[in-house]
Write a protein that binds this DNA or RNA. Structure first.
Length: 190
DNA sequence: TAGGCCATCTGGTCCT
DNA sequence: AGGACCAGATGGCCTA
């Protein structure tokens, strides 16, 4: 199927709203939307007040325009949501390509969740390994290394050794930084 | 043809 | 008041 929201397959342009409504909307939908429909057929209700009738017509026309406006907004919102979904698909680890069917929305979300969980476990494993490897040599490369600013009391060094990259918000995996926090430190983290 | 997926409309609710 | 968000309903398209 490839549910690619190609514009050609569906009426998605806001400009097409009115035309779409008139031509494609099922009568039970369109009936209460279009101003002319609510006059209930027949001949305009005999002997009515013209001013009142005109005012009612304008109001219904305004309601109709408002409906179109609201529909357009909702359509745009859903298109934006779909764009975000496409962006998510692009970074998901599955085979992309014209010959490959696009992931459905639910599949995209479930895959994304699993992917994040997998990345988290990989990160934990990596931190554990780095801690094992460098745990005994902490002071040599970490807090004192190369004239870089000392870690405690300041921002962490940009790198651990040559390979480990500190990321903002992630705890340093090394043994020293893993010591229990003091009450003061805990307060600082709040 | 049934079922899955999707776009759209619509009314309700919440927020600014 | 107007906009954003949400969920239900509906109908179209596609595939097994």
């Amino acid at each position: 199927m490839n549910s690619d929201s190609s514009p050609s397959s569906r009426a998605s342009s806001p400009d097409m709203d009115a035309m779409f409504l008139r031509e494609h909307l099922p009568s039970h939908h369109f009936h209460h939307l279009h101003p002319s429909s609510s006059s209930g057929g027949g001949g305009g209700g005999g002997g009515g007040n013209n001013k009142l009738k005109l005012k009612k017509q304008v109001t219904e026309e305004e309601m109709y325009q408002l409906r179109l406006k609201i529909n357009g907004r909702e359509r745009k919102r859903m298109h934006d949501l779909n764009l975000a979904m496409d962006g998510l698909r692009e970074v998901m680890p599955y085979a992309h390509g014209p010959s490959v069917r696009k992931l459905s929305k639910i599949a995209t979300l479930l895959l994304a969740r699993n992917y994040i969980l997998m990345l988290n476990s990989s990160l934990d494993e990596m931190k554990r390994l780095v801690g094992e490897i460098y745990g005994g040599q902490h002071s040599a490369f970490h807090c004192g290394g190369g004239g870089a600013a000392a870690h405690p009391g300041g921002s962490p060094p940009a790198q651990l050794g040559s390979g480990f990259q500190h990321w903002a918000g992630l705890p340093c995996p090394c043994a020293i930084c893993q010591v229990p926090l003091t009450g003061e430190a805990k307060d600082a983290m709040k």
